[in-house]
């Protein structure tokens, strides 16, 4: 039995003539302790896929099994890091994390909860900003709070929906390392959704491209055989890295071109000639 299993998932929005098919026959299995990355173009239905797994959405057809059981609603076992941070702006950093921790461990005492909060806030290096509100923080800091909030609930699986998409390159690299560190320390299962192939290769064990929607479906998977801990600079010279990277990019380019050619379908024009007006 796999840890997470998606069986023949279809997802459509709307009804009748306004139906948009987003996901088409998605099959995916993730084993415990694995780090899987799904790479895809923007607008290909990545967020929909994530919401199916974390329980915010239900599939139109098919099953999502988590530890053998179908997913009903959200669960504390699956922590989510949203693309747009989704911090509550009227709460401070500490309060944002505290709220999550309190829900995850309702039986713990206040001081125990506070210890967990400060531990996780320290883990993302934000102890100095624990009493600040999200609007006083930079984008990278906000995302780190979101990471702390998701991890502080000690989920068995971390689901990340383009968590670093809105950050600048430098902050991105730092946060990638931080997330990898935490993942390595506590060995949880992780699913990363990203549009950056390099990020996927650097972080994941497996990369699965998502063919662009409508009717998005998963492409063939690419195994990343690079030993951990990985080093960003060393990796650039790794022949394995180059090979996988080229293969994935080639594949994505190909489907990108396919899509383009679909759009640029040639229309056969009727054979019409202007009439000559003769008086």
């Amino acid at each position: 039995m796999s840890y997470l299993e998606l069986k023949n998932i279809y997802k459509t929005y709307g009804e009748g003539d306004n139906t948009t098919e987003v996901l088409y026959n998605i099959n995916l299995t993730i084993e415990e302790g694995e780090f899987v990355a799904i790479v895809g173009f923007t607008g290909s239905g990545k967020t929909t896929l994530v919401n199916l797994i974390n329980g915010l959405l239900e599939p139109t057809k098919g099953e999502v099994l988590f530890k053998g059981e179908p997913i009903v609603g959200t669960s504390h076992e699956r922590g989510v890091i949203f693309q747009n941070y989704s911090l509550l702006p009227w709460l401070t950093v500490g309060q944002n994390v505290y709220m999550a921790v309190k829900e995850a461990f309702p039986k713990k005492s206040k001081s125990e909860l506070n210890t967990i909060v400060s531990e996780y806030v320290a883990m993302v290096n934000l102890s100095h900003a624990i009493n600040k509100r999200p609007k006083e923080l930079s984008g990278g800091m906000r995302q780190r709070v979101a990471v702390a909030r998701a991890l502080a609930m000690k989920p068995e699986m971390i689901i990340m929906d383009e968590p670093l998409g809105a950050l600048d390159a430098l902050t991105r690299v730092n946060l990638q390392d931080e997330i990898l560190n935490i993942w390595g320390k506590e060995k949880r299962t992780a699913l990363l959704i990203t549009n950056d192939v390099d990020e996927g290769i650097y972080m994941a064990d497996r990369i699965i491209p998502l063919r662009p929607g409508p009717n998005a479906t998963l492409g063939p998977e690419f195994k990343i055989d690079i030993e951990r801990p990985r080093d960003k600079t060393e990796m650039n010279d790794n022949p394995n890295f180059k090979k996988t990277r080229n293969a994935i990019i080639e594949y994505l380019m190909e489907i990108g071109n396919e899509r383009k050619s679909e759009v640029q379908k040639e229309y056969i024009l009727p054979d019409l000639a202007p009439k000559s007006f003769v008086w």
């Binding site: 915010l56 922590g79 747009n84 709220m99 829900e103 995850a104």
Partner: peptide, 12 residues
């Protein structure tokens, strides 16, 4: 909608 999603994920 983001805040509602947060509430759902935290299971408030």
């Amino acid at each position: 909608k983001d805040y509602i999603n947060v509430a759902k994920v935290l299971k408030l």
